[in-house]
Design a protein around this nucleic acid. Structure first.
Lengths: 307, 307
DNA sequence: ATCTGTCGATGCGATCCACGCATCAATCGG
DNA sequence: CCGATTGATGCGTGGATCGCATCGACAGAT
């Protein structure tokens, strides 16, 4: 026993109007079509749903129940189609962004805020982790795209430069180097250096910078999180070098920051997408919002510039 | 943008199996049918739902959403059809019975109890009122059938005798007539008579009985409800005559009941149905339960017998 | 009583849709 | 490099669905 949507639509219209002719006019089909559709439905469910004489149409008990049920089914169909439509238009759904903790905490909040004002029905999921994790999440499809640094760009990802994030020296305010306007990497190499963990993209870049000035760069201490580095600097154990974007994660303390020169080092943060894949509309919208922020030259923390 | 149930079924099967061939085998259709159905659906919604190369099928973001929605719609359809089926089989729904208060209170409770044991998903509505109201409720379709007395049987109703309900004298235990085993209507006519209201079917029958013994039968008092008559009798204001079935409605009191003879009078309670109408299955089931009670000769109060 | 307009049902023919069969190109496993 | 298997597609057929025209039944007007 099956009933097509066409039959249910026809029956519901006739039952509501208690008239084949009127319902036919409303639906824009011929009266004979409805007569057949209802007769077919009745034959299929094996019960008379409408009592009709030539003058009146009225519902039987089964017909009343059938109308209620038909409206339920048709409503579910209508609502479902509308829901899918909203999803396809990017008005609902979820955007999953894989990104580094600093980006998640500092750069994205204002973007997300602007995006959700425009599209309140869209949820944004932030998947934060280190560079490797972040890229894997995009490759596996867990995330729609990533904002991250890229060491060895995997071929299956497409990249779009987003911001440049310059390294600065992180000093305690009473440190001798704090008097300078700028600090050189060679200067920094002479101080006890507090590094972040080996997995971090920041670590890769600081190691490379020290290499450029022929410094060996053996860290005095190594910490997993930036906040820990902040604690160490505040305690006077040494100095560090971090991209400007992560400075808010240091926490509060007697810090001063000085631009690092010789060389000027920055990390580029890219939008990374799976290559040759069409993006969900809602993701495109999120990227557009991000692009708008750049086009408008929205304020960024000192040391961070749109790429 | 519309999607047929066939398309949704096809898509859901393919998406769940992530294989056209496997889904085709499950549904018992050819692979080409599914290939076309999914392609049509994608064209209609205007988005790719499945990524397929010759070796693998995987869902896009839109495809995941579409699967969720398709399952919702198909679930609503399946559930609705099943619900209608249950209704048509008489396993769910509502039976509306119009009847006299005495029948509702005394005869029906045990029937309803038995019926609901067999069909727990069926609700029973009791519409109690006086004879005229009861019949109107059946004629208007508010009730599926009635159990009631019938004065002038309307032609549009079909009747099936159900029980006979004998009149008995209602006396206070210290009344002189209480010594007798039986009481004659003529005896009763010599006492102050406490009658029920004019609209009642009981009143019509008591008037007729007094007429048969040439008694004038001017009531000493007249009350709307049987319970009020009970109060009057208990207070010693007079005697009454009531069908055995209504005696439980008198309430408690120092009553004695004596069979009334010369003539023996009973009222017939009929099942009244709208003529030439097919009954909802659930109503038929209720009537079958009632018939079973009669066939089994279930206990009835003294003075009440199956017709 | 008869006529007339309107109702839903139905015969008919045209059209469209959905299906399966057969086959193709692409790809994977051996 | 070859056979097996995948999903896509050309093709022909059968059934479903449609509108048109018409029928019989009935209500209300005359």
């Amino acid at each position: 026993m099956d009933a097509t949507l066409r039959q249910l639509t026809a029956y519901a219209a006739v039952a509501r109007a208690t008239s084949f002719t009127a319902a036919a006019a409303q639906l824009g089909v011929s009266q004979s079509t409805l007569s057949r559709a209802v007769a077919d439905l009745e034959r299929q469910v094996g019960a008379q749903l409408l009592e009709r004489d030539t003058r009146n149409v009225q519902l039987t008990a089964a017909g009343t129940e059938a109308l209620r049920i038909a409206e339920q089914i048709l409503g579910a169909h209508r609502a479902g189609m509308k829901e899918l439509d909203r999803f396809l238009l990017g008005e609902s759904g979820t955007v999953a962004v894989a990104t580094l903790p600093s980006v998640a905490a500092v750069l994205l909040p204002q973007v997300i805020s602007g995006f959700r004002t425009e599209r309140p029905r869209v949820a944004v999921r932030l998947l934060d982790g280190l560079e490797r994790t972040v890229l894997n999440r995009v490759l596996s499809g867990d995330a729609d795209f990533a904002i991250t640094t890229v060491g060895v760009p995997p071929e299956r990802l497409e990249h779009r430069p987003l911001v440049r994030d310059r390294f600065v020296a992180v000093l305690r305010e009473d440190h001798p180097l704090a008097d300078r306007d700028e600090v050189g990497w060679a200067d920094l190499a002479r101080e006890p250096f507090l590094a972040v963990g080996r997995d971090s993209s920041v670590r890769r870049l600081t190691d490379a910078a020290f290499g450029q000035v022929d410094a060996h760069a053996v860290p005095a201490a190594e910490a997993g999180s930036v906040a820990t580095v902040g604690g160490l600097v505040a305690a006077g154990l040494g100095v560090s070098a971090l991209p400007a974007l992560v400075l808010p994660l240091l926490g509060t303390g007697p810090f001063v920051f000085r631009p690092l020169v010789d060389p000027v080092v920055d990390r580029r943060l890219d939008i990374a997408l799976r290559a040759r894949r069409t993006l969900p509309r809602v993701t495109e919208h999120f990227l557009e919002t991000l692009e708008d922020f750049r086009a408008q030259g929205r304020d960024l923390p000192p040391g961070v510039t749109w790429a």
